[in-house]
Structures are given as structure tokens and as C-alpha cells.
């Protein structure tokens, strides 16, 4: 089963992402900020995709992407940013850090699932 790590400091957002992913049969791991996600990753948690918010306490999503890309076992893992940040500048920052894609909230469940299917195929 494809396993996805969803990272967001908002419980309701984690819940909505989780509901969407589980409805399509994905297994979902959750982390409430970048630091917790990085700890999971460093603890050898194997995932097929990471979906992360940008603005979070302790460690933001862009830093998380950069840190994950530095881990040998995460170099090939798709990292999707799901955020309210819509500026071109932030998006370029995410791309430079190693993000695979950028989705602006509020997300459409259908579009998110179609995007994920493309990425993890």
C-alpha cells in the first residue's frame, strides 16, 4: 500500500488531507510540524510521498524539504507542498529546496488525488 506522510500544524487540515488520502486507499502518517516529520524520516520511516504545509512552528515546510533532500533515502521521494502561500517567490523557494510540486489551499480532493496518482505512479 502506498504510504503518505502528511505534515501540517493545523489539526483540521491534517484531518481533511487524511480523509482525502484514505478515501483513495492510501496509508497516511501524520506529523504536526517539520521537525516531527524530519524525526520520522530520520527514524527510517519509509514513505512514498510527503505532503507538507509551509508555515509551521519549529520547522517550516521549505526547510523540511531541504532537510529531507539531504537524507539519502529521501532523495527520490516526491515532496509535495500544500500551502496557502501563493506567491511566485515562495514557490520558487520551494522548487529550489527540492519540492516536486506546489498545491495552493484550499485543495480540491479530486485534483489532489489526481496529482498524487501522477506523482507516485
Amino acid at each position: 500500500m502506498t504510504r503518505i506522510l502528511a505534515v501540517d500544524d493545523s489539526p483540521s487540515m491534517r484531518q481533511m488531507v487524511g480523509v482525502t488520502l484514505k478515501s483513495a486507499g492510501y496509508e497516511v502518517l501524520e506529523a504536526c510540524d517539520g521537525q516531527e516529520a524530519l524525526n520520522l524520516a530520520k527514524g527510517q520511516a519509509a514513505v512514498d510521498l510527503v505532503i507538507t504545509d509551509v508555515n509551521m512552528p519549529n520547522m517550516d515546510g521549505i526547510t523540511l524539504v531541504r532537510e529531507l533532500r539531504a537524507l539519502p533515502h529521501y532523495r527520490g521521494v516526491p515532496l509535495l507542498v500544500l500551502t496557502t502561500e501563493a506567491s511566485a517567490e515562495k514557490k520558487m523557494e520551494g522548487k529550489a529546496a527540492g519540492a516536486t510540486g506546489w498545491v495552493v489551499k484550499p485543495f480540491s480532493p479530486d485534483r489532489l488525488l489526481a496529482t498524487i496518482a501522477r506523482i507516485v505512479a
Binding site: 516536486t100 510540486g101 485534483r111 506523482i119
Partner: peptide, 12 residues
């Protein structure tokens, strides 16, 4: 123009 639309998806 510099801001993405809500709900937009862009793959790099």
C-alpha cells in the same frame, strides 16, 4: 499575476 490561484496545482 504573481500569485497562484487558490486550489492551483503546479508540478516542477
Amino acid at each position: 499575476a504573481e500569485c497562484a490561484t487558490q486550489g492551483s496545482v503546479e508540478l516542477f
